[in-house]
């Protein structure tokens, strides 16, 4: 456990936030505006999964915006209050016990803080099927907005049965001649309006109770093996592309044995976003919860920041007694 005399004041913060998606940036805005010295450390691109969203039309108070634009505004807002942001870092060690928490980066830099907010977000789940990594960017895509136009006039498959899969399948019909949705169940998890829109689109076809077990091709993808999950039968299916939308995995591997996680690797929190370790809060897509939206991440980030401020106040009060 770190002792106060070991603190390097330059690298000491009231709060350290790990992750710069909407949850982390919101926490950064609240904490720095409350004059808490705040550092955000982020392993990937600032904005997290939000930047993967082409259009956000249900963010209250904003009629329509892009995920990239929204994340840029949040980043500027956090910085305007004095929040420091370091992107593309890698965490090598994390010491969260006691009043002084420490984060050590792979470049050797070490930072201490009295509170830590974990908001590392999630990443698109991959299928793990044979050939998936070989054909990533050569026919396999995880972003319809980015790569849709490469498939103009072609036939593709979309894997998944949630909102993303069905909505992106519909948006891809602008480019392609045929979309075949491959889904592991006989029903969809998407909202009814998304199901209705996909089912009424003449370019969209469905193969249910099935999954893709392998991807084939030479320079680029030319076919997939579709396995019927009820009969086990595998058949080759010719296709020019495959878009995969099968949910997200929490980026919490580095927290195993440090923080209590559930069986899915999600961080367990209470209503105040407190984790199993005092002074450590969590927010956003990494926590155990049902709904994952930009707006819910922002709500989580706000609560985590307010709880962190309360924790900082308690430490200060304890010291002054």
């Amino acid at each position: 456990m770190l002792q106060p005399e070991t603190i390097n004041k330059t690298n000491h913060y009231d709060a350290i936030i790990i992750g710069a998606g909407p949850a982390g940036l919101t926490a950064g805005i609240y904490l720095s505006r409350a004059r808490a010295r705040t550092l955000i450390l982020n392993e990937g691109v600032v904005g997290g999964q939000m930047v993967l969203t082409h259009e956000i039309a249900n963010y209250p108070g904003v009629e329509k915006t892009g995920g990239y634009q929204l994340s840029n505004i949040m980043k500027k807002q956090a910085r305007s209050f004095g929040c420091e942001i370091r992107a593309n870092i890698r965490i090598s060690e994390l010491h969260l016990e006691g009043d002084i928490k420490q984060v050590i980066l792979s470049d050797g830099n070490a930072y201490t803080g009295n509170a830590v907010i974990l908001a590392p977000g999630g990443r698109p789940r991959t299928m793990g099927a044979d050939g998936e990594s070989t054909f990533k960017g050569r026919g396999i895509s995880y972003c319809a907005t980015c790569d849709g136009d490469f498939f103009t006039g072609k036939e593709i498959v979309v894997v998944g049965g949630g909102n993303s899969a069905l909505e992106e399948a519909v948006s891809l019909t602008k480019y392609v001649t045929k979309v075949t949705i491959v889904h592991q169940f006989d029903h969809f998890q998407a909202y009814q309006h998304a199901i209705d829109e996909a089912q009424s689109n003449p370019k969209i076809h469905f193969i249910l109770n099935s999954t893709i077990s392998a991807f084939h091709g030479s320079e680029s993808l030319t076919s997939v093996d579709i396995q019927n999950l009820k009969t086990g039968e595998i058949r080759e299916f010719k296709t020019d592309g495959a878009f995969i939308f099968i949910g997200y995995l929490p980026n919490t591997e580095f927290l195993a044995k440090i923080i209590e996680l559930n069986e899915k690797g999600e961080i367990i929190v209470n209503g105040d976003m407190e984790t199993s370790v005092r002074g450590v809060l969590a927010a956003g897509d990494c926590i155990a919860k049902r709904y994952r939206q930009v707006t819910t991440a922002i709500g989580d980030g706000t609560i985590a920041a307010l709880s962190a401020l309360n924790h900082l106040h308690q430490i200060k009060t304890r010291k002054s007694i």
Binding site: V45, H54, Y68, A87, T145, C146
Partner: peptide, 16 residues
């Protein structure tokens, strides 16, 4: 690339 979600992370990494 473009100013799209798959491209931006690569630009960010290059800037770093």
């Amino acid at each position: 690339g473009r100013m799209g979600p798959m491209c931006l992370p690569v630009y960010d990494i290059m800037e770093e």
